[in-house]
Design a protein around this nucleic acid. Structure first.
Length: 232
DNA sequence: GCGACAG
DNA sequence: ATCTTGTCGC
């Protein structure tokens, strides 16, 4: 995998206390400056699972803007716990990444990046483990508050602040829609993250790469269920 | 102690 | 995260 020596250990904490320590270590490695080619190629990352089935398999997809998506199915190590989503979903997403022939220059992940209590959302997990540029785009807030008033017009932004620190941006990606929350995953500045997300908005609430990944993950899950499989 | 809580 | 149907609006 990436340049992290104990990447495998960082994916499998034995306890929540250990998971917390790993997140602090990952957060310390996050680079908040641009380190990717100009006009980067983009891909989206998302997962799909059965309704309220916290133990069943997770289907992950990485969807490039151009070309076919890669998918993978993994049984998650533990159920969803707010603040620890990275440990639940990153293994499946990394498996899908490994199957992707042409790696994109930058990955847009469905979930938070730095906009996390320990500055280590799933986009940072994946970015640091792969040492690859990532952006987090979430549909709702995990922590922090939107500063001031978010404009009504499409494209309006407002700072997202937590404990006095700027951790991301609220973005009105579409008029009359609830905002999305953009934050640094790894190797990108918040300014560039915003510009890139805006560039693939396509007039929808969620950026196109995430929509494509969402569709691909759902298709993988349907195929899995249609095949009657029970385990990964 | 109470409430809040990505996917 | 996901299920389901209808309804409203451009």
């Amino acid at each position: 995998m990436g340049v992290v020596p104990d990447a495998q250990a960082w994916l499998n904490p034995a306890t929540l206390t250990q998971a917390t320590a790993i997140q602090r270590a990952i957060a310390a490695r996050v680079e908040m400056v641009d380190r990717f080619p100009a006009a980067p190629s983009l891909a989206g990352a998302d997962t799909s699972m059965r309704w309220r089935d916290s133990r069943g398999p997770i289907h992950a997809a990485i969807a490039p803007l151009a070309g076919a998506a890669a998918t993978a199915t993994i049984v998650p190590p533990f159920p969803y716990v707010p603040g620890y989503l990275g440990f639940r979903e990153a293994p499946a997403l990394l498996a899908a990444w490994a199957r992707l022939a042409e790696k994109p220059d930058l990955l847009i992940v469905d979930g938070q990046g730095r906009a996390h209590p320990r500055r280590c959302g799933i986009a940072s997990h994946i970015g640091v483990l792969l040492d690859w540029p990532t952006i987090g785009v979430a549909k709702s807030l995990l922590c922090g508050q939107v500063e001031g008033v978010l404009g009504e017009a499409a494209g309006a932004t407002a700072p997202l602040v937590d404990r006095g620190e700027l951790i991301g941006l609220a973005l009105r990606s579409r008029a009359r829609a609830k905002p999305i929350f953009v934050s640094i995953g790894h190797r990108v500045s918040l300014e560039s993250a915003l510009a890139l997300i805006r560039s693939v908005g396509e007039g929808r609430r969620q950026p196109l790469p995430i929509r494509r990944a969402h569709d691909a993950a759902n298709a993988a899950r349907r195929a899995w269920e249609a095949a009657g499989a029970t385990s990964a």
